[in-house]
Design a binder for these strands. Structure first.
Lengths: 252, 252
DNA sequence: CGATGCCTTGAATGAAATCAAGGCAGGTGG
DNA sequence: CCACCTGCCTTGATTTCATTCAAGGCATCG
């Protein structure tokens, strides 16, 4: 799990940032770009299963996902794990460990990931000199919050079937806008059924049976270590949920 | 439910803001105070059951809770309701309706509430002229996020008993630092069992049985329309959770 | 070739939902 | 003042959904 994560000096200059190329992200102004370029202190590479941040530890850094998928989670003392949300390109990690710097959750890589590393210390400077970027950070926090709201509704009030449909179509829609850089077409969601179970608050066995039903109905196909969405519309209907119509979103 | 909410011109000048008097909140600098005073456009009073914001509607305002308790929630098309979090003095409402202004959740008063009303439009001005206040807003968003994380863990992975214990002791600890202005001693939590059920993702009947057990064990006492915490430590143990040690927190 | 990780399935058990009543206080209208 | 309603809490019986237990399959990897 918690393995060495190689840290490199920044190799991808922000001007050639793979995220900037994407349709769904907003452009930086030149001064903003300069600032962020300078704000970025390193680049981090994580392999599947590597920890990015660990609950209870101090992380003086913030991270932005450049490529790859990960997830945030918490565990109870006796080992029960709850996945809180997934991390895709453009997502910011580590804001919540405010002030005390002590992380309240852990994060782990699902696929090979690259991340931009920022110094939390210098965040105040950004707020002073680039209010628009500060606003973006708030925007990102608010966005995360509304995803968590929806997850809570899901776990609290949707049935196993509905929950599973919601999760898969939620991830699918995120993957569509930010997910698989370069790969073009929709790559399967890089999860195991254990991840799904720990996200939905269900047991592995019951998750398996639920996914089986969705597959039997021709809505999804379960692969080696991932899930292919066959009928997104059908899943929307089951979940009673549609992805929000997002206009260009910010990132740091 | 959705009833008229009287809006008044600001009556409580920020300098005599009841929240500022509280131990656990940080002080404003004089220029900050001036700005916020000017930022505040009105005051709103809501009675128990009144809606503060409504999912799907446009709310060009932001609110800060001055006094009283409320809650945020979402409902599915068929009426199933999930309470997302509770609103206490110092909490900011309405951030998440970013950009499109369309609220993603509703909020309702639990007790009589007074709220400060701000214009969302002028938020950018705040970011430009008062980076420290901008930082505070981010801080508040991050704080909300970590509460939601904990709620997710709770609903996803804790048993009914543990969940109930967690919720009650969570609210108790919030009430201790911000809750009952003026009243001095710990007022009972102003909830019905239906609220608890909708927060925990349980049915009303099962919630009742669970609370009964907690009461039988002498951990709580259930009153008319509220809950009295008798043994917070006992609840902590059941929930496997302790309240975070919060230093002075910001508010707007 | 034995391990290990991931998916699958059936059977037994348990936790929580649903169904069905009833109690009790406070509020209202006859 | 009493009769009736309404909102909130309580309890038992039954059913449903999800967990746990137990196995087995099937790839991949050292």
């Amino acid at each position: 799990m918690a393995n060495p994560k190689p840290i490199y000096p920044p190799r991808v200059p922000c001007i050639r940032c793979p995220i900037r190329r994407l349709e769904s992200f907003r452009d930086f102004s030149p001064p903003e770009l300069d600032f962020v370029q300078d704000f970025k202190v390193a680049e981090l590479v994580a392999d599947p299963g590597n920890s990015i941040v660990v609950e209870g530890e101090r992380h003086p850094q913030l991270y932005t996902v450049l490529t790859g998928w990960g997830f945030r989670y918490k565990i109870l003392e006796d080992g029960r794990r709850q996945i809180l949300n997934y991390l895709l390109p453009g997502d910011l990690i580590g804001l919540q460990g405010n002030i005390m710097l002590e992380m309240q959750h852990s994060a782990e890589a699902l696929t090979k990931m690259t991340l931009c590393v920022f110094e939390r210390e210098r965040l105040m400077t950004m707020y002073q000199h680039h209010p628009s970027l500060a606003y973006d950070i708030t925007w990102l926090a608010a966005r995360e919050e509304s995803m968590l709201d929806e997850h809570l509704l899901s776990i609290g009030r949707r049935s196993a079937m509905e929950r599973a449909a919601y999760l898969l179509v939620f991830l699918h829609s995120r993957a569509m806008t930010t997910g698989n850089l370069a790969q073009g077409k929709s790559t399967p969601l890089p999860l195991t059924q254990q991840h799904v179970a720990d996200t939905l608050g269900l047991s592995l066995v019951h998750t398996n049976k639920t996914l089986r039903k969705l597959a039997d109905q021709g809505l999804i196909r379960w692969l080696d270590r991932g899930c292919e969405i066959v009928d997104a519309t059908g899943l929307h209907q089951i979940a009673q949920w549609r992805p929000p119509a997002e206009s260009k979103r910010p990132f740091i």
